[in-house]
């Protein structure tokens, strides 16, 4: 399928307008100092092509913070599964490679048996258009060591910004349909291909392993660090706010809650984002808390990125986006944690 086409930069506005005629389109928008968010756009004028990872990753479209999964009637004793109709068709434009990797991970988790029907229903309605990072967003990112600074699937179209145009990889029939339907693209010429290759070569020099250990050693480092003093240090620093997990593109833990309507007869069961950093998260009704300490909960968060998913899903679930470190009030920094753990073992 894969084929390369060109969109002139001056045509970006037309392109977004064309997309917005048949689907809801969301793209990164500036939200004040060093803050961006995916929000709906009608044209290409307001979106930000240069942005640091958005406050929330695109997972909010695949698995909203609150999602109704069921309606019930407590007099009729009836529970009816529902899909929320948030959008008919959605195009997410401008997804960085770290977030593409996050989407790929969630697709894998939710597609595993028993399949999450609500997630998969949303996934089918979403078209993903990636956008290459030509340079680092900031020093929190660790995408090179996580190998997510280059695209490896998870998109329908992938845009790379060149001097006067976007070099576009067409990866799926959905992407192909957009290219044909909008009529704004032309085949990539030799000049653009050369420019694209030069850009990738330049990236090789810019993106360097951001932590001391190499990618393939991370699993082993975490697997041998259950009893590390690093967790005691994080225990003292973490304030258990749960920001790190909320902004993580691969954190998907949730709570299930019942809410009654005002008539006290009908109501809805909703799935709400939850965080393993909350004190109550692993507590049972009898009062026992299996991760009562903040250090144990931080360890759990890290293990769920670098250790457990390797056995279960054959990959890391850290995308190197840096959001957890960027948002942490206690300045707990993922790159530092990795280096300190590695150092303690050496």
């Amino acid at each position: 399928m894969t084929k390369s086409v060109i969109l002139k930069k001056t045509e970006l506005n037309h392109f977004i307008e064309a997309l917005a005629r048949s689907a809801a389109v969301v793209a990164p928008i500036a939200k004040g100092v060093k803050s961006f968010a995916f929000e709906e756009v009608r044209d290409g004028k307001t979106l930000s092509l240069k942005y640091i990872p958005t406050i929330l990753p695109p997972k909010k479209y695949f698995m909203p913070q609150r999602e109704k999964i069921q309606e019930f009637d407590r007099k009729a004793f009836r529970w009816t599964p529902v899909k929320e109709n948030g959008f008919e068709k959605l195009v997410i434009f401008g997804v960085h490679t770290c977030d593409l990797s996050g989407i790929q991970f969630l697709n894998q988790v939710m597609g595993e048996d028993p399949k999450d029907v609500n997630y998969l229903a949303r996934m089918e309605k979403i078209t993903v258009i990636g956008l290459e990072c030509n340079d680092y967003c900031d020093s929190y990112a660790s995408c090179a060591v996580m190998k997510t600074h280059l695209p490896s699937g998870g998109y329908d179209l992938f845009f790379t910004e060149l001097a006067g145009s976007f070099f576009v990889d067409v990866a799926t029939p959905k992407g192909e349909a957009i290219v044909k339907g909008t009529g704004l693209f032309k085949d990539a010429g030799e000049v653009e291909k050369k420019e694209f290759e030069n850009l990738r070569a330049k990236k090789e020099k810019i993106f360097r392993q951001e932590v001391k250990p190499a990618n393939e050693n991370l699993k082993g480092i975490f697997a041998r660090s259950f009893r590390s003093e690093v967790w005691d240090d994080l225990d003292r620093r973490c304030v258990a706010c749960g920001n790190c997990t909320n902004v993580c593109p691969t954190c998907y833990c949730f709570d299930i809650r019942d809410e009654m309507d005002l008539n006290l007869t009908t109501g809805a069961r909703t799935r709400v984002w939850d965080s393993c950093q909350n004190e109550e998260f692993a507590k049972v009704a009898g009062g026992e808390n299996f991760r009562g300490k903040r250090g144990a909960r931080q360890r759990h968060r890290y293990m769920r990125k670098f250790n457990y998913p390797v056995d279960r899903f054959q990959r890391y679930s850290c995308t190197g986006c840096g959001r957890c470190s960027r948002t942490c009030m206690a300045k707990i920094n993922l790159k530092e944690t990795i280096d300190t753990l590695a150092e303690a073992l050496s």
């Binding site: 998907y252 833990c253 939850d274 393993c276 998260f281 692993a282 299996f290 769920r304 457990y308």
Partner: peptide, 12 residues
């Protein structure tokens, strides 16, 4: 109950 929500996780 289906290995997704994370609450019951015991290490891996």
């Amino acid at each position: 109950g289906v290995g997704k929500c994370g609450h019951c996780q015991i290490a891996q």
